[in-house]
Computed example of a mutant assay.
Amino acid sequence: MHTGLRITAFAAALAATFGTAYGVGRGVDPLVAESAPAPHDRHGGVSAQPEEAREGGGREGHGATPPGGLQVTENGYTLDLATPRVTAGQRTELRFTVRDGDGEAVTAYQREHGKELHLVLASRDLVTYRHLHPTRAADGTWSTPVDLPRAGGYRVLADFTPAKKNAENLTLGADLAASGRYEPAHLPAPDGTAGVDGYQVELAGSLRPGRESGLKLKVSRDGEPVTDLQPYLGAYGHLVALRSGDLAYLHVHPNGEPGDGTTEPGPEISFTAAAPSGGTYRLFLDFQHRGEVHTAAFTVRAGSAPGTQDFGGHGH
C-alpha cells in the first residue's frame, strides 16, 4: 500500500434482527481486534451516506481523497468472492479471485510493502477486525483461513495494484455473511487510550474531515515506553480507519520508515491523514514487538466541535 491515504467507501448494509439467525444460506489471521461491546454507544463517488456518516459536514469533505470501493467492479477489474457465506465460530477457507475486463484471473501484481495484495475484513458493527495477507495460487485464486467469532454482516476489502504499466491502485469490496445467532453490539465510546495484549496505546491529535491533520500513537508496556518496535511490512505501524455506517475505508502509513536515519522505533508512531467526511470512525493500529503483531482499536469522531476530539497532549 502506498504511503499516504486511500479511502474506500462502502454502502449496502446487511439486514439482521436481534436474537434471530443471521444469513443462513449454507453451511486466522493473528491480527485481531475484538472489542468488548460498550454499554452505549481515489476511487469513485458516494451515491448516499447514512445519517451517522453525515455528522459534521454532510458531503464528503473537500481536500480529502474521494471515497471509492463501493463497487465490486472498478476500472475493468472485478472482485469475485467465491466464499460469500461462512458459519460463525468455524474455521473456513476464504477464497476469491480478481478478474480483468475479459473475465480472466489476474496473476501478476505489484508488490507493495512486501505483499501483492492486502485484505481487510471487518464486521459491520466494527467490533471484529482482520488485516489479512492471503496466498495466491498459480491460477490467480487467493485464499486465507478465517474464523469469525460472531454472526452478522462483514465487508471484505481487497487492496492491490495490477502489474500492468501505468496501473493504478484499486480497492474492491464485497459483502460476506457469517451465519449463526446474531446479537448486535454497540460501538465503544471515544477514548484516547486502548489496551491490547498487555500494551497501552495512547492516541493524540484528531481526525478532521476534508483536511490533513496529525495523529500520534504512543506505545507502552507496564508503564514503560516501548522503544524497540520492530518493522512490520516495512513500517513501525499501520493504521486503518473505517467509518461507522458505510465502512468508508482509510489506510495510511506512518511518517518516516525504518532505516531512514530519523525515524525512531517507538514509542511514538506518527501519521498524517484526512477523513472523507465528518462522522464516527474506528481506528485500528497494527504494530509489532518481540516478534508478535498486536492491534489496538480506537473510536474517534471527525467533524465534532473544535477541540472535543483532540486526545492527549503529546500529539500537538
Rank of each mutant, 00 (worst) to 15 (best):
R282L: 05
P265M: 11
P188K: 04
R181I: 14
G223E: 13
D175H: 13
K164N: 08
A174D: 04
S213R: 11
P184K: 13
V240G: 10
E257G: 13
P225V: 03
P267W: 04
P258R: 12
P225N: 11
L242V: 03
P258Y: 12
L170G: 04
G205Q: 03
P265T: 07
V300F: 00
R282I: 08
L176P: 08
F284Q: 07
V196G: 14
T280E: 11
E183I: 15
A275I: 13
D286N: 12
V300Q: 07
V196W: 02
R221S: 04
G278R: 02
D191V: 15
A296L: 10
V196S: 09
V240W: 02
H253K: 06
A178M: 04
L285G: 06
Y236T: 04
K164P: 01
A273E: 11
F298Y: 07
L207V: 13
Y281V: 02
D191N: 12
L283G: 10
L172M: 06
N255K: 08
V201T: 12
I269K: 00
P184W: 11
G259Y: 06
N169D: 15
R181P: 03
G234D: 10
P188H: 04
T295C: 09
T299Y: 07
P188I: 02
T272H: 10
E257T: 11
T280W: 10
H238G: 09
A302Y: 03
A248W: 07
